[in-house]
Simulated assay, not measured.
Amino acid sequence: MPMKKKSLIRRFAGIGVATLAVSAAAANSVEAQTSSSTTHTPKVVASGLNSPRQLTFSPGGWLYVAEAGTTGRTACRPSNLDPKAKACVGLTGSVARIGARGTVTRVVRGLPSVGTADEPLGPADLVFTEGDSFALTIGLGGSTAYRASFGSMGARLGTLVNVDLRSHEGPRVTRIADLAAYEARANPDKGHVESNPTGLARWGDSYVYTDSGGNAVNSTRHGGTTLAVLPPVPTTKPTPNGPPAGFPAEAVPTDVVRGPDGAWYVSQLVGFPFEKGAATIWRLVPGHAPTAYATGLTNVTSLAFDHHGRLYAVEIAANGLLNGPVGALVRVPRESTSPVVVAGGLAAPYGVALRGDDAYVTTHTTEAGAGQVLRVHL
């Protein structure tokens, strides 16, 4: 019997907001203790971001960050996460450009952000198509009917849009594809219909994306196609006051990147109870079943290859989300069964982008105004 699907952030809700939103002081304390014992000491290069997710460099070398926003106060309704809480929509999502001295310039504002203040969904990942133009996924965490309940402000939720920064009248945002509608039409994993577009990569004139709500890796080719469906991951041991061993935790693909060999690589955040070591990095060749590139990871949200062909990943919670979102930047050797920690003790990290011998990582990923970008020398 298919399990009810949940949005990416909803998987965090299983541990409760209090656990997810660890105090900044506690998280920073862990970060400082861990960083002091390694040569890969993270340095804050930007702060003041609103729930930052994935980030990327433009062809001109600027660093851009997708911000999921701070939701809003419009069209409030019972939350999918907690019926006692209110999910609202607002136009608080944005994309920020990070300057050389850490200045944050929001080059795109007014994008939709939905959910609760502690668990916003909105702009998720971006990939440049030209020097001043990029494609952007916008999360949803529900069905097309759920989207419609938020009215006109929610119209772009669950879509892929193009953003053109060249207009003198401001950024021009146009829809490329309705990703939530594809989930509703195709329902790749045959479960509860729910879409939450997250990771994004370019594929010629089309795109490949992860739908964390739909447990699928899809493309926009031919009006929408499914490249892979990730099956549930059975737990290996019982959880106190939780599910027994063998419980089918959801697969949750989170990011997709093109490898040096031309294959797609997909990260995985295994759902509740977020078992440590349960996540796999999948290698995907269209037309073939996914194969494991590496195993033994935990709650992975982002991937990137460096110029040497080495794969790096972000674990939002290195010990599993039941123990709080204190994560790590790790290197993932092929066929490894556990990753190599590069920088640990990071407060709710999410995205990673590489440039030269440095990694840039977003942290405090569900906090309004507290989000950061860290630079880690590799």
Rank of each mutant, 00 (worst) to 15 (best):
P2I: 01
I9H: 10
R10S: 13
F12L: 12
G14I: 00
G16T: 04
L20I: 11
A24V: 04
A25D: 09
E31P: 01
T34R: 12
H40Q: 11
T41R: 14
K43M: 13
K43P: 01
S51Q: 10
S51W: 11
P52G: 09
R53I: 02
Q54E: 14
F57D: 04
S58R: 10
S58M: 11
P59G: 11
W62Q: 13
Y64K: 05
T70E: 13
R73Y: 14
R73F: 14
T74A: 14
P78D: 09
L81G: 13
K84M: 15
K84L: 15
K86Q: 15
K86P: 06
C88S: 09
T92D: 11
R97I: 12
I98C: 10
G99T: 07
V104E: 10
T105G: 08
R106V: 03
R109S: 12
G122C: 14
D125N: 15
F128Y: 07
T129L: 13
A135Q: 09
L136D: 01
T137Y: 02
S143C: 15
Y146P: 01
R147P: 03
F150E: 06
G151L: 03
R156P: 06
L160R: 03
N162I: 02
P171I: 10
P171H: 13
A177R: 12
L179E: 02
A181F: 11
D189W: 04
G191T: 03
N196I: 00
A201D: 13
R202Q: 10
S206E: 15
S212K: 06
N215K: 12
A216F: 11
V217W: 04
N218S: 15
S219G: 13
T225F: 06
A228W: 09
A228C: 05
L230Y: 00
V233F: 08
P234A: 11
P238A: 01
P238T: 03
N241W: 09
G246N: 10
A251S: 13
P253D: 00
T254A: 08
V256C: 07
A263R: 07
W264L: 15
F274P: 00
E275C: 00
I281M: 03
I281A: 06
R283M: 01
G287W: 06
A289W: 07
T291D: 04
G296Y: 07
G296F: 05
V300D: 03
V300C: 04
A304Y: 06
H308I: 02
L311V: 02
Y312L: 09
N319K: 11
L322E: 00
L322G: 01
P325K: 05
G327M: 05
A328M: 06
E335H: 15
P339Q: 06
V340W: 04
A343V: 00
A343G: 11
G344L: 02
G345P: 03
A348G: 11
P349I: 00
Y350G: 01
Y350V: 07
A353Q: 10
L354R: 00
R355E: 08
A368C: 05
V373H: 03
R375S: 12
H377I: 07
L378D: 04
